[in-house]
């Protein structure tokens, strides 16, 4: 029996999305499953954005907080550090300080932070709210305007607030993250609702909701795989936006990235363990289909970039 490689080609293709202006970057565009360049084209590497926030990262565990000591008290110096010292290709600014249970900063304050950060960096900016449905719709509308002409990604639009956020992204020419909770049908439905408002599907990014390794990652993994299969095999256009893995925020919350080795000797060194936890979570998202990742620890990012190198060449 002679071996014939069972290669598969698809009619569908993931949309190619370009963000930023000065140092613009593109991702997506492939017509095959993740890293299956042996049977189609994969024009771009996935992009990893460094996460920063509008308030000091006091809630981040020591291992990752200490990396940004001295720069993280101010979002501008933090962003510069990521661009200049860590060679970030993109930056994700999370406006967590606007959450009503946190510092409860107002839209005007958020606007100022966004403008200041944007004038300090050349790489593309992803602007995230605090994941508070009502507050996000106020805050993201304000910052979308402040960021106009910079071709940012704003998010996340959810079922409860997509109308205002979509309108703002549309008015100021940004890309938009649509997030739903771990269900391919919900995700599809939200993308449809958003495009029905006239928002071009080619400017969407789907976030099916990330989960950390050990804390439900298999659900995100399978939802991503199914979305990608629908995009390729069924040529389903609403499922063809690139996928986001918002990795860092989920990973640096779990016990495995916080418990000391003294507390749990069988888990080994906290530093390596937590960095690996973020890197493995990211790798799983990539293999499942994510084209855009948001991460926190530079050593995890470096390892994942090397992983991508090996997968691409």
């Amino acid at each position: 029996m002679a071996f014939v490689a069972p290669k598969e080609t698809f009619s569908g293709k993931v949309f190619e999305v370009t963000i930023g202006t000065d140092k613009a970057i593109s991702f997506g565009g492939e017509n095959v499953l993740p890293f299956h360049s042996f049977e189609g084209t994969v024009p771009h590497r996935p992009v990893i954005a460094y996460e920063i926030q509008d308030v000091p990262p006091e809630d981040w565990p020591e291992t990752v907080r200490s990396v940004y000591e001295g720069v993280s008290s101010d979002p501008v110096s933090w962003a510069r550090f990521c661009e200049d010292k860590l060679n970030a290709k993109a930056i994700a600014l999370r406006l967590i300080g606007t959450h009503p249970d946190r510092e409860n900063k107002g839209p005007e304050e958020a606007k100022k932070v966004v403008s200041d950060v944007l004038s300090a960096i050349k790489v593309p900016l992803i602007i995230l709210g605090s994941n508070h449905v009502e507050k996000d719709s106020e805050v993201l509308v304000a910052v979308a305007e402040a960021a106009k002409d910079r071709n940012c990604i704003i998010g996340k639009a959810q079922e409860g607030n997509y109308k205002t956020i979509t309108a703002a992204a549309m008015a100021h020419n940004h890309k938009l993250i649509a997030m739903s909770e771990l269900d391919i049908n919900l995700s599809k439905q939200l993308n449809i609702l958003i495009t029905q408002m006239g928002f071009p599907k080619e400017r969407l990014i789907t976030d099916p909701m990330c989960s950390a390794l050990g804390y439900g990652i298999e659900y995100t993994y399978s939802v991503m795989e199914r979305i990608r299969l629908a995009a390729l095999t069924q040529n389903d256009a609403v499922m063809q936006p690139p996928l986001l893995g918002d990795v860092g925020t989920y990973v640096w919350k779990v016990k495995e990235t916080q418990a000391s080795e003294t507390e749990l000797p069988s888990w080994g060194s906290l530093k390596e363990r937590s960095i690996t936890w973020e890197a493995v979570t990211a790798a799983a998202m990539l293999v499942a289909g994510a084209e855009l990742l948001i991460m926190r620890h530079p050593e995890a990012v470096v390892a994942v970039e090397r992983f991508i190198d090996e997968l691409m060449q």
Partner: peptide
């Protein structure tokens, strides 16, 4: 290394769970 094992064991456990079992 223990720290590396923990990630790998967990990933394997997650990937090999039964997707039919209700969440």
């Amino acid at each position: 290394e223990k720290w590396k094992n923990l990630s790998l064991f967990t990933l394997r456990q997650n990937i090999y769970t039964d997707p039919q079992v209700p969440m």
